[in-house]
């Protein structure tokens, strides 16, 4: 029973990934794409979690954490880039 539910949720996740990819490809502006990427990261986190249950493995929990961090950092970096033009600001001495 649980397996059926897991597979069903994987299907839905897949569809939502495809939807974000559509936005990623089509996205008229850069912020659209960045948001799509962020959503993609979260979807992947859920996918990996469901997989871990399906595979009965704890080996991928680090991956989940990592994707969370990366997705966060990546989105912030993109946001900074779009907002200010640079990701890491330098101290100007003069």
């Amino acid at each position: 029973m649980i397996k059926v539910i897991l597979i069903c949720s994987l299907f839905f996740l897949t569809f939502s990934i495809l939807a974000t990819i559509y936005r990623l490809v089509k996205g008229p502006s850069a912020p659209d794409r960045v948001q799509a990427l962020d959503a993609l990261g979260i979807n992947i986190i859920s996918g990996v979690a469901i997989f871990s249950v399906l595979l009965r493995s704890i080996g991928f929990f680090e991956v989940i954490l990592l994707i969370g961090i990366l997705s966060f950092i990546g989105t912030i970096a993109f946001a900074r880039f779009i907002e200010r033009g640079v990701v890491i600001e330098r101290k100007h001495s003069e």
């Binding site: 990819i21 990623l24 990427l37 993609l40 990261g41 992947i44 996918g47 990996v48 997989f51 595979l55 493995s57 080996g59 991928f60 680090e62 991956v63």
Partner: peptide, 16 residues
């Protein structure tokens, strides 16, 4: 996105 999909493949093929 290709790179992240590859990461997912690694997950799928059990390579954490």
């Amino acid at each position: 996105s290709v790179g992240y999909s590859l990461a997912l493949f690694f997950v799928l093929f059990r390579a954490p």
